[in-house]
Design a protein around this nucleic acid. Structure first.
Lengths: 185, 185
DNA sequence: AGATGCATGTAACCAGTTACATGATTTA
DNA sequence: TAAATCATGTAACTGGTTACATGCATCT
């Protein structure tokens, strides 16, 4: 408990609290979840997670509820932690994502040959198709399960499916657009 | 020139080199561009940019081609810099974007009341609509212009337009999906 | 003469990644 | 008993943000 300062808008904190809201877990356990369900929305490394759990404990948002073999520490979310999580979810807005390396490159496509530029866009389309296949795979594995993480995870999955379609269609469109522009000259 | 080490995959470096590939500019000039055209794909702060220009100069990828009033330094991209830029564009792949605070929150929507969860999704739809309006505004201003940055910028803009539509449709779908799920119980 | 805009730089801090380091328990 | 897995932690470094600091040139 608590003089620890957090910058506003830090989401590893909330991702961690969120996972602990489903039940107690150790850093090791959480790491699995970050590697599975949350891998595509909020990846976290091992060293980051252990550090975060330490900070959350110092801040009184989680506690070590039990200790197990091999130094295992099982963390539970506290009332304070739940309050903070609910506050974040209900009363703050997500920061819009900016920064897209994929689009940054688009701005400089004029430096490449037309063939190279086209290849870039084809690769984006292919990557989107591949992403879609991966997501459908996950969907299949999720099918029989339920539980909150899965129910809401499916909403996120649908987002990813739509995203990948959009990206593929855009890339195909962009190829045509560049061809059209070249002809016009 | 040069013993300066760069980590792989750093895009402010390439964003800066890319802008300088269109012609010489000062840090101040570039800052305007980062605040306008690149604001939505690769924002950069003033302090970051000046630091980056220093590092690029140390690495021999840019040079101070001219000095003006008020200590103005006009940077030019060097042959080495152009080579690096072309290498990045043509021979490396963009890292897929992960991390979406918007989707992270979706995973924890079960902690809110159904009304709050719906409100969240409605807000996403509204934000997407607003984003779309902003992009159409930019499109209008871009209309009469040309030049490489604008031509390719339009491809990026189209991406953003399609993205905002996708997001709105997804959010609307998700609202219905949650209602459906609640009824089923 | 004063406001605005041009122009650069530095310091402190936070978030995230990679690599290193260690050791206990279980299973084959 | 050796390998795999469980389990935690620390150090060094990079990239990014915010805030501070300074000063010259132009325009009214």
């Amino acid at each position: 408990m608590s003089t620890v300062k957090y910058a506003e808008v830090v989401s590893l904190k909330h991702a961690t609290l969120g996972l602990l809201s489903f039940g107690p877990a150790s850093g090791y356990d959480l790491l699995q979840t970050f590697g599975e369900s949350l891998a595509n929305v909020w990846p976290a490394t091992q060293s980051q997670l252990y550090g975060e759990l330490g900070k959350l404990a110092d801040a009184g948002l989680v506690t070590v509820a039990a200790e197990g073999p091999r130094g295992r520490k099982e963390y539970s979310i506290t009332d304070e932690g739940m309050a903070e999580l609910r506050h974040w979810l209900g009363e703050t807005k997500p920061a819009p994502t900016r920064r897209s390396e994929m689009l940054l490159r688009v701005f400089f496509l004029g430096l490449l040959t037309p063939e190279q530029a086209e290849a870039y866009l084809h690769d984006r389309a292919a990557a989107a198709t591949e992403m879609r296949a991966g997501m459908l795979e996950i969907d299949k594995q999720l099918e029989p399960q339920d539980g909150d993480l899965v129910v809401y995870g499916r909403l996120a999955l649908e987002w990813a499916l739509r995203y990948s379609v959009m990206q593929r269609e855009w890339a195909d469109w962009a190829v045509e657009e560049l061809r059209r522009a070249r002809k016009e000259e």
